[in-house]
Nucleic acid binder design. Structure first.
Length: 314
DNA sequence: GAATGTTTAGGGCGCC
DNA sequence: GGCGCCCTAAACATTC
């Protein structure tokens, strides 16, 4: 199996697993969910390696989507014709990678059916995702926010004040600690292809965020967010409650390793700035055309209606 | 028929 | 060596 080269990855296999790549694609979507075809497109556009042998890796990718509990399938609504479902990240799949790195998972995410706090059902997960979409778009609409990932629609996991950084948030995905195999950090590599994520300073790192008490999208409403989705399971340092379904860091990142964030640099990582319009959810157009409030059943299964709900709120 | 989704199987690799 | 993660292949079912 080819390994990352020293100078360029443009045509070599990325150091990321299919799970990571899929997570990147999903997390790059404004609504944090994508159909399979869009996931394919995301990977192929950013990683030239995957423009070949598509049958092979796409089969593997589909296998991962089905096999891994960290991915949940969200059905299309009847009025959203198309093949396949939307795929999203399980709301409880946090902290799955070692130190936030996507190079290797520390623990396989597994939903325990006996765990009443883990939203294991797709409907529950969809509810959570809807809530997250609301929070994200709330951040997008916040005029006082400085330019940041939200302004680019690049995976802000929560509005200002919540501080919640999903481990799959693009800030974490962009390999804040990834270094070239030769030991050189990304900035020292002059020929870094645009196909690979570059380090930036967006990533405060979710371990310290979790541990700082910032994880409360509902403004301190308690242990549960909207729709009864538990928040504590994602916050391993908040309540001392341990849930087997939620991986916890083996080696929590020391605070010193997470410097304070400077102002966001103007250019975003090339991996994301190249996001084509096609990455926008296919349902985004339909959301604006729907005037009636989304019913609960609609909001459970439709990213479009999730968006619509946000628009209605704002 | 093609795309999508599920399941099973086997092997490589790293970690403990 | 055992275990877990990852990759690949294949077969099959479902949906459009």
């Amino acid at each position: 199996m080819p390994r990352p080269g020293r100078n360029t990855y443009s045509d070599q296999k990325p150091p990321y697993s299919y799970i990571s790549l899929t997570a990147m694609a999903i997390q790059s979507a404004p609504e944090k969910m994508l159909p399979l075809s869009e996931i394919y497109k995301f990977i192929m556009e950013r990683f030239p390696y995957y423009r070949e042998n598509t049958q092979r890796w796409q089969n593997s990718l589909r296998h991962n989507l089905s096999f891994n509990d960290c991915f949940i399938k969200i059905p299309r609504r009847p009025d959203q014709p198309g093949k396949g479902s939307f795929w999203a990240l399980h709301p409880s799949c946090g902290d799955m990678f070692e130190n936030g790195s996507f190079l290797r998972r520390r623990k396989r995410f597994k939903v325990l059916k006996a765990d009443p706090l883990a939203p294991s059902k797709p409907a529950e997960a969809a509810q959570f995702l809807q809530q997250q979409a609301k929070l994200r778009l709330g951040a997008l609409a916040a005029p006082h926010l400085p330019p940041g990932p939200a302004a680019y629609g690049l995976g802000v996991a929560a509005p200002a004040g919540s501080g919640f950084k999903h481990p799959f948030a693009i800030e974490n995905i962009i390999a804040r600690e990834y270094k070239m195999p030769g030991g050189l950090p990304f900035p020292a590599v002059p020929a870094m292809p645009a196909a690979y994520p570059l380090p930036n300073q967006l990533a405060p790192g979710w371990p310290h965020v979790y541990g700082s008490g910032m994880l409360d999208p509902m403004g301190g409403a308690g242990d549960y967010g909207a729709y009864g989705v538990p928040l504590k399971p994602l916050c391993h340092a908040a309540g001392g409650q341990t849930l087997p379904a939620i991986p916890v860091p083996i080696k929590p990142a020391p605070a010193a390793a997470v410097p304070a964030l400077p102002a966001l640099p103007a250019p975003l990582p090339a991996i994301l700035s190249n996001s084509p319009p096609s990455l926008s959810p296919p349902s985004s157009q339909t959301a604006a055309s729907q005037s009636s409030p989304a019913t609960p059943s609609e909001t459970l299964t439709s990213p479009a209606s999730a968006l619509h709900a946000v628009v209605a709120v704002h």
